[in-house]
Every structure is written in C-alpha cells, then in structure tokens.
C-alpha cells in the first residue's frame, strides 16, 4: 500500500527528560517519576487538577500527549478528529500490583474504586480524549517491543478509510520507575517544516529519539 502520510510532531519522555520534536525541553535530575511528572506539569503550566488523580501510566501518557497537542489542539470547545492509538509492554501492571495489595489481607481489605479504574491500560486514552475533546477512534495494544510496522499500518488504515483526520500514535510504557513515552502525530499533509514522511525508518528513528537530531 503506497500512501504518503507525514509525522508532524513528536514528544519523547524518558530518563527524567522531555523532548519535543527532538529538542530537549525539560530535564530534572535525581527525581522519582512522581516528582518528575509533577515538575513537568508545573513547568509547562498545565492547569488540570484531575491530573493528580491519575495513576502513573495515565500521568505519563497524558503529559506526553498534552505537550504534543498543545500546538495542535487550539480549543477543546471544538471537536478534534484525532485518533489515539497507543501500545506498551506492561499494560496496567503497575497499578494492578497496587490494587492487588489492597485486597491481599483479609483484615485490611479495602479495594479502592479510584485505583481499580486504572487497572485497564486504555484509561489513559480516555483521559487524553476527555481533556482534548477527542470523540474519535481509539485503541490500546500490548506488545513486548515497540511495534513500528503494526503502528504504521494501523494509522495509515485509519487515515485512508477516513475514520480519522490525524492519528496520535504512541508507546507509553511504565512499570514502577521504568518508563518511556514516545508519541507522535501522523497526518495526511506535511504541515510544518519539521514534517517527516511516515515510514518504518522514521518511526524507528523516532522511537530511539534520533529522528530530528540526525
């Protein structure tokens, strides 16, 4: 299938640093994920108190999407036909373990609904959709490794079948203190001077955070 789509923006969050379209925009040494994510929230002046109710996977996915979409989504008053297709390795296991602890002891058995709701990996897509008014296609997948080829074809299919105008693709992995988010926006036209062709090579470069630095 020959189909020319473009990657117009990206956001990578790893090792306590944020990279927007390849450029290092924030770094915080010696912090755990909880401290780091809060620092990113403050630094980029996100005003969204619900952020603090999210589990760590949702915080990670939310921040990476938010920083990228800031430039794209002008208003959440209007609808934005941006599909969200994410994948990771550990599903919601980080929160699953936390929830399991709440039901492990017969004498201290207080399952929390606010924790339970995050024991599904697609909740992070829900959070992003609510914030940006994305009444659009969405799916969450689990793979052992970043599925560059699968992601590319799935996004192309959504654009070609006119089920979405743009597709926010991403790898949003978090388990305990190991995390990494790589999200990027795919669209039909080359919308800015950074735009790169949407193909396996560029996606792989993006995943290793070398696309815009080569």
């Amino acid at each position: 299938m020959e189909f020319n789509n473009y990657i117009s923006e990206s956001c990578v969050i790893e090792d306590n640093a944020v990279f927007l379209s390849g450029e290092n925009s924030f770094i915080l040494d010696d912090a755990n994920f909880s401290e780091f994510s809060k620092a990113v929230y403050k630094k980029f002046e996100i005003e969204y108190p619900k952020f603090f109710k999210m589990d760590n996977l949702s915080k990670l996915a939310f921040l990476s999407a938010e920083l990228l979409l800031k430039e794209v989504v002008q208003s959440n008053e209007q609808e934005n036909d941006i599909a969200v297709v994410f994948a990771n390795r550990s599903s919601s296991l980080d929160t699953d373990v936390k929830y399991q602890e709440s039901i492990a002891s017969k004498d201290n058995y207080f399952p929390s609904p606010a924790v339970f709701v995050y024991t599904l990996p697609n909740i992070c897509i829900g959070e992003i959709s609510i914030k940006n008014n994305l009444k659009s296609e969405n799916a969450f997948f689990v793979f052992e490794e970043f599925p560059a080829e699968f992601m590319m074809h799935y996004a192309n299919n959504l654009l070609e079948s006119e089920k979405a105008e743009k597709v926010l693709c991403g790898w949003t992995e978090l388990y305990k203190e190991n995390y990494r988010a790589v999200v990027y926006l795919v669209e039909k036209t080359s919308s800015n001077s950074f735009s790169k062709e949407h193909n396996i090579e560029t996606i792989k470069q993006l995943y290793t955070n070398t696309l815009w630095t080569l």
Partner: peptide, 24 residues
C-alpha cells in the same frame, strides 16, 4: 497483537483483524 481496551476488547479485536488484513 494483544488488544486490551477494556470491555470492547473482544469486538475491537475483530475490527483490528479486518483493518490489518485490509492493509495487506
């Protein structure tokens, strides 16, 4: 390909199969 999208997973998996076969 693991589809884990809460309670729509089972039917979404059919969509995913169709879409991925369409791509070739």
């Amino acid at each position: 390909i693991v589809v884990s999208n809460a309670c729509v997973s089972g039917i979404l998996a059919v969509s995913v199969a169709k879409r991925m076969i369409e791509t070739g």
